[in-house]
Amino acid sequence: MMKAVKLSALVAVAALATGCASTSDIENLQGQIDSLKPQVAAASADAASAKAAAAEAAAKAAAAEAAANRAAQYAQDTNSKLDRMFRKSQHK
């Protein structure tokens, strides 16, 4: 997206630096710029879609991490209970 805009600006500067541009040159450049506008809009929409998908994936990953942490805590609690039960049975 930005690359296209930069390229258009570079072409415009090069045309102005090489001398007076004719009307057909200016019209040609304007045509190129106009043809790039839909591509820039599509790239911007794709970037917004990708950003939304990344945010959704990050939220799902955070939820999965929280679930894994809970499961690990439950397992640790169960192991502690089993150890206490074993020690209690050995103590008698």
Rank of each mutant, 00 (worst) to 15 (best):
V40G: 02
A52N: 11
N69P: 00
V40Y: 01
T23K: 15
S22H: 11
E56S: 12
E65L: 01
L36E: 02
A59Y: 01
Q39A: 05
S35K: 13
A41T: 06
L7R: 12
A15F: 03
D25T: 10
I33L: 07
E27M: 09
A45G: 05
A62G: 03
A66Q: 08
D46L: 10
A57P: 03
Q32N: 14
R70Q: 15
V11T: 09
V13L: 13
S49G: 15
G19N: 06
N69G: 07
A53L: 10
N28W: 07
S44M: 08
A52R: 11
A48L: 11
A9S: 14
V13E: 14
A57G: 07
S8L: 06
M2E: 09
K51Y: 11
D34I: 02
K6S: 10
A14Q: 12
L10H: 07
A45Q: 14
D34A: 13
E56D: 15
A47F: 13
A41N: 10
Q39N: 12
V5S: 10
Q32F: 06
A47E: 14
S44L: 12
C20E: 15
E27S: 12
Q30P: 03
A54R: 10
K51C: 08
A14K: 14
S35E: 15
Q32S: 10
G31N: 11
A67D: 11
L10M: 08
A21V: 09
A21I: 04
A63G: 04
A72F: 03
C20S: 15
A45P: 02
Q30S: 14
A59N: 05
A21G: 06
S22G: 13
K3C: 05
I33F: 03
M2L: 14
A52W: 03
S35L: 15
A4E: 04
Q32Y: 05
A41Y: 04
A42Y: 04
A66D: 08
K3N: 12
A72M: 11
A64S: 09
A50C: 06
A63P: 00
A67C: 04
A50L: 11
G19Q: 08
A57D: 11
V13Y: 03
A17G: 10
G31W: 02
A58W: 06
A68R: 07
L29D: 00
A55Q: 15
A4D: 04
A58K: 15
N28M: 08
A63Y: 01
A53V: 05
I33N: 02
N28P: 01
V5R: 09
A72V: 05
N69M: 13
K6V: 05
A54S: 14
C20I: 15
N28I: 01
K51L: 13
A14P: 02
L7Q: 15
G19T: 06
N28V: 02
K51Q: 15
A42V: 05
S8T: 01
E56C: 05
K60V: 03
S35H: 12
A9I: 06
M2W: 02
K6P: 00
A57L: 13
A21T: 09
A45L: 11
V5M: 14
A63N: 08
A72L: 10
V11G: 00
